[in-house]
Each structure stands twice: as structure tokens, then as C-alpha cells.
């Protein structure tokens, strides 16, 4: 059952990712990318990473892709500008992706030796290694606390980015309010 679900979601992921990079309309591309994110959540679910799957939907499909859509609409790129989806640079992208894929294949143990033990990782199971238990720091407690620092850094960045363009857009902001 798990294998079937894994293959199903993995296949959906690859197909939607391919469709995402070949669409000419940026909004359509973003929509296929949403489906890619959701399929990835499905893959996580098939592997038993329940909390991670929900986080994937919550953050990537629910927040990051909405942001992407807003950016695409904010720029408002006319579809005609993107008539040629394949540029010379995209060839290098394919080469790089292929290299990474080959590297993965060489590092991967032979298929018959792979025996994945799947157990469901729920939110509570994550808490003790991540944050700590029994009055001890968890193994990744520092990373947990650094996560908050990262969020603060990202807030600074976001505000700086929006503020630099403030003078030019202030008129439009009035119109659209």
C-alpha cells in the first residue's frame, strides 16, 4: 500500500514539475508547482512522516505558493514575453539536475538492500529530539532556537525589500487600497 502511494505521488510530482517548467503562462506554471508541493506532501505521508507532510502543505502550498502567485501577478508579465520557454541557460540547468541525479544514484545502496522501516513521525514524536525532554536540551535544541533567529532575519529582509521601492509605488498604493 505504502509503495503504491509512494509511486503514485512520486509520479504525480515528476509530471507536475515537468509541466511547471514548460508552461508559458507564469500563473499556470505556479499552479503546477502547487500540485508538485502537494504531491511531495503525499510522498512524505507515504513514508510515514505525518507531521512533515502537514508542514509541507501548511508552509509550501499554503503560504509560499500564495506568495509566488502574488509575485507573478504583481509583476504582471505579459504572456507574449515568455514565448520561448527554453533559453540557452536552461540547458545548463538540465545538465546540473542530471549531475545531481547521477550523484544520488551512485551514493544510493543497491535496491535489494534497501529496507525502509516506516513508522509514523507525529508532532509529539518530534518534540523530544527537537526541543528536549526530562529537563534536558534536545539534540537539536540549538537549531530550534536558531529557527527563531532565522525568522527574525527574514523579517528584516522582507521589510528592507518592500521599503526600498516605497517612494515609487506610493501613488499606486493609494489607488489600490
Amino acid at each position: 500500500m505504502r509503495e503504491a502511494a509512494f509511486l503514485l505521488f512520486g509520479g504525480a510530482m515528476i509530471i507536475s514539475a515537468l509541466l511547471a517548467v514548460t508552461r508559458r503562462n507564469p500563473v499556470h506554471a505556479a499552479l503546477w508547482l502547487v500540485l508538485t508541493m502537494l504531491s511531495l506532501a503525499g510522498v512524505y505521508l507515504a513514508l510515514g512522516a505525518v507531521f512533515l507532510a502537514m508542514a509541507q502543505i501548511f508552509v509550501y502550498a499554503g503560504a509560499i505558493m500564495v506568495l509566488f502567485l502574488f509575485v507573478v501577478m504583481l509583476v504582471g508579465a505579459p504572456v507574449e514575453e515568455l514565448k520561448t520557454p527554453f533559453r540557452k541557460g536552461s540547458l545548463w540547468g538540465v545538465v546540473a539536475a542530471g549531475a545531481v541525479f547521477v550523484a544520488f544514484l551512485t551514493r544510493m545502496p543497491a535496491l535489494e538492500r534497501v529496507r525502509v522501516v516506516v513508522f509514523e513521525v507525529t508532532a509529539r514524536a518530534l518534540a523530544s529530539p527537537l526541543i528536549g525532554s526530562g529537563g534536558n536540551w534536545g539534540r537539536h535544541a540549538l537549531a530550534f532556537e536558531l529557527g527563531s533567529v532565522l525568522v527574525v532575519a527574514a523579517i528584516l529582509g522582507a521589510i528592507l525589500m518592500v521599503r526600498t521601492g516605497r517612494e515609487e509605488i506610493s501613488e499606486e498604493a493609494d489607488d489600490d487600497r
Binding site: A63, L67, L74, A158, V162
Partner: peptide
């Protein structure tokens, strides 16, 4: 449209 929508989406994400 207003860049405000974009910054709201970004802050929400964070």
C-alpha cells in the same frame, strides 16, 4: 497592484 499584498503574504509566511 499595491506591493502591500506582497509584503502581507511574506510576513504571513514568516
Amino acid at each position: 497592484f499595491s506591493v502591500k499584498f506582497y509584503s502581507v503574504a511574506m510576513l504571513f509566511l514568516l
